[in-house]
């Protein structure tokens, strides 16, 4: 399959996913870090809770929902990457990328609205 010794799957007791670069694991961890950063960023806005209670809670709830969505699909994402590497082709995760970027744009817009209101 892959003749390059640096990237060819290890024989025998190789990593679970057959990729010595541990790409599925690194990608899943990168998503996990992103969830943590997303929630930490929106948690900053809880400082406004006394003045803008419902609005801030809605904003925080939105990021919690986005984070939960990413977290709930982690196992599926990891499995999909492993299968993709095994099969030699992997469909790009367009939906996850655009939802995540969209959530960040909305978080920024809500933040600007809070600052200017």
């Amino acid at each position: 399959m892959d003749e390059n010794p640096a990237t060819a799957p290890l024989p025998g007791n190789g990593p679970l996913d057959g990729d010595p670069g541990l790409q599925p694991e690194r990608t899943a961890l990168a998503w996990g870090r992103t969830v943590l950063t997303l929630i930490a960023a929106s948690a900053m806005s809880l400082r406004w809770l006394p003045d803008q209670g419902p609005f801030v809670l809605a904003m925080f709830g939105l990021t919690i929902a986005a984070g939960t969505g990413i977290y709930a699909t982690q196992r599926r994402r990891y499995r999909r990457s492993i299968e993709g590497i095994r099969a030699g082709h992997l469909a790009p995760d367009t939906t996850a990328v655009f939802w995540t970027a969209g959530a960040c744009v909305v978080l920024g817009a809500l933040g600007i609205w809070l600052v200017l209101s």
């Binding site: 790409q23 990608t27 993709g84 082709h89 992997l90 790009p92 990328v97």
Partner: peptide
């Protein structure tokens, strides 16, 4: 479809930017 490892690397780069 490119090498799946490139697709995953691109995804991680996107996440680093995000």
């Amino acid at each position: 479809e490119p090498d799946p490892r490139f697709t995953l690397a691109n995804e991680r780069t996107f996440l680093a930017w995000i």
